[in-house]
Amino acid sequence: MALDRWIALIFVAFCCAYGYLAFFTMDELLPPFMQRNPVWPSTFPKVLSVLGIIAGLIVLTGLEAHDEAEPDPSAINWRRLHDYNLGQALLLLGLMVVYALALRPAGFLPSTVLFLALGAAILGERRWIVTILVAVLASGFVWWLVERVLGIFLRPFPTFL
């Protein structure tokens, strides 16, 4: 089986588990006044799980596949997986996990600036001043939007400050 079908199979399994949680476990603790609402907190996860299962099954059954004489050069060839930049991809995934874990204790602004700057460095950017300037401005702008415009409290700095 091709790599895209294996990924689709894993995606369908994930969507089935997510759908089970959305359909059978999320709504049992709703207060009585919310049980009469037409839209529940689980409505969007239910729609996402069904659409994810449909999209995964389309890929899994091969309905989207093209019958071409020569393979698409942009398609992933799993036999030549060592030719791709797997190190960068794995480093970025690790950096995302570290960012998610550091977001609460380190605060939004320092962790986001470090995530953006280190992510750009992993991807090959070598203009450090521009990278840090863009990371600081982008983090500050997003914090300002969430905090001031949307009115959602977002801790900008670590708790000890």
Rank of each mutant, 00 (worst) to 15 (best):
M1A: 07
M1Y: 04
A2C: 03
L3C: 04
D4G: 03
W6S: 07
I7R: 06
A8Q: 12
L9Q: 12
L9R: 07
I10G: 10
I10A: 14
F11Q: 01
V12L: 10
F14P: 02
Y18A: 13
Y18L: 10
Y20Q: 02
Y20A: 14
T25W: 04
T25E: 14
D27F: 04
E28H: 14
E28R: 12
L30M: 13
L30W: 04
P32W: 08
P32S: 07
F33L: 02
F33I: 09
N37I: 01
P38C: 08
V39A: 11
W40N: 06
W40H: 14
P41I: 08
P41L: 02
T43G: 05
T43A: 08
F44A: 11
P45S: 09
V47Q: 04
S49I: 05
S49K: 09
V50G: 10
L51W: 14
G52N: 12
G52S: 05
I53A: 09
A55V: 05
I58L: 13
L63H: 11
A65F: 04
A65L: 05
H66W: 00
D67P: 00
E68I: 01
A69Q: 07
A69M: 07
P71I: 07
P73F: 04
S74I: 02
I76H: 01
N77H: 12
W78M: 04
W78E: 15
Q88P: 00
Q88T: 10
A89C: 07
A89I: 15
L92C: 13
L92F: 11
L93W: 12
L93N: 00
L95P: 11
L95V: 09
M96R: 00
V97S: 12
V97G: 14
V98L: 15
V98M: 15
V98H: 08
Y99M: 12
A100Q: 09
L101R: 06
A102H: 05
L103N: 02
L103F: 15
P105M: 06
P105I: 06
A106Q: 08
F108S: 06
F108Q: 09
S111D: 03
V113W: 06
V113H: 01
F115K: 13
L116W: 05
L118E: 03
L118T: 11
A121Y: 10
A121S: 13
L123S: 15
G124A: 12
E125V: 15
E125D: 15
W128D: 08
I129E: 03
I129N: 00
V130N: 01
V130M: 05
V130K: 11
V130F: 06
I132G: 03
I132L: 15
A135C: 06
A135G: 02
V136N: 01
L137R: 02
L137V: 14
A138I: 06
G140H: 08
G140K: 02
F141S: 13
F141R: 02
F141A: 13
V142M: 13
W143C: 08
W144C: 13
W144A: 10
W144F: 15
V149Y: 02
V149H: 05
L150R: 03
I152A: 07
F153C: 00
L154E: 04
L154P: 05
R155P: 14
F157E: 11
T159K: 05
T159C: 01
F160L: 12
